[in-house]
Each structure stands twice: as structure tokens, then as C-alpha cells.
């Protein structure tokens, strides 16, 4: 029995929604970063599933997925550096308390 593509897509959609919920509900900057990672992993599951079922001859989907997690790593490196910078300046990484910039 082969597993239909819908199963993968449902898992990916669920993971994406959980990530989005985490992003919107977390107060801690690190928590938000983890939510973003979940969203990106959902994208990777989608890409690999589509590649396997629709276009297994060419490598497009795989290559795309590799680029997604490589770039995500670079992005997180910058993000953590920014979190450290804000911690040094303000002694907090809770997003609601970072409120110097307001009209």
C-alpha cells in the first residue's frame, strides 16, 4: 500500500499552522524563532512530497528544500545575533517589553 500525497500535505499544513500559532502567541523572541523554524520545515515537507509524487525525475524540489534550510540557518544565525544585541541593551528578550519605538 502506498501512502497518498494528501497525508504529507496535511502534516505539512498542520505543522505550518502550529508554527504560525507559535509565532503569534509566544512572547519570547527565541520562541518566535522556533515557530518560524516550524513553518519553514512545513515548507520542506511540502516540497519533498510534491517532488516525490509529481516530478521525481528532476531534482528541483530537493534542491529547493536544501536551499530553504541552508538559508534558514543563515537567517537564524543573524536572528540570534540580534537577540543577543537586544539582550545586552535592554536585559530582556520578551517582545512586549521591547518598546522604545512608539509613536
Amino acid at each position: 500500500m502506498t501512502i497518498p500525497i494528501n497525508w504529507y500535505l496535511l502534516v505539512a499544513a498542520g505543522l505550518f499552522s502550529i508554527g504560525l500559532y507559535g509565532v503569534l502567541s509566544r512572547r519570547n523572541a527565541i520562541g518566535i524563532l522556533m515557530g518560524i523554524e516550524l513553518m519553514l520545515n512545513a515548507v520542506n515537507i511540502n516540497l519533498i512530497a510534491f517532488w516525490r509524487y509529481l516530478d521525481p525525475v528532476r531534482m528541483t524540489g530537493q534542491v529547493f528544500a536544501i536551499f530553504v534550510f541552508t538559508v534558514a540557518a543563515a537567517e537564524v544565525a543573524v536572528g540570534l545575533a540580534l537577540v543577543i544585541a537586544i539582550y545586552r541593551n535592554r536585559d530582556t528578550i520578551v517582545i512586549e517589553e521591547i518598546d522604545l519605538l512608539k509613536e
Binding site: 504560525l20 509565532v23 523572541a29 518566535i32 524563532l33 518560524i36 513553518m39 537567517e75 543573524v78 536572528g79 540580534l82 537577540v83 544585541a85 537586544i86 545586552r88 541593551n89 535592554r90 517582545i95 521591547i98 522604545l100 519605538l101
Partner: peptide, 17 residues
Amino acid sequence: DGKGSEAAIKYFLYGSI
């Protein structure tokens, strides 16, 4: 600069989402 880091982290979080 506190304002600069705050701007950057807000920009970063919006941008990555």
C-alpha cells in the same frame, strides 16, 4: 544603540515570518 537593535529585531521577526 538600543533603538537600532530593537528596530532590527522587529524587522527580522516580521521579515522571517
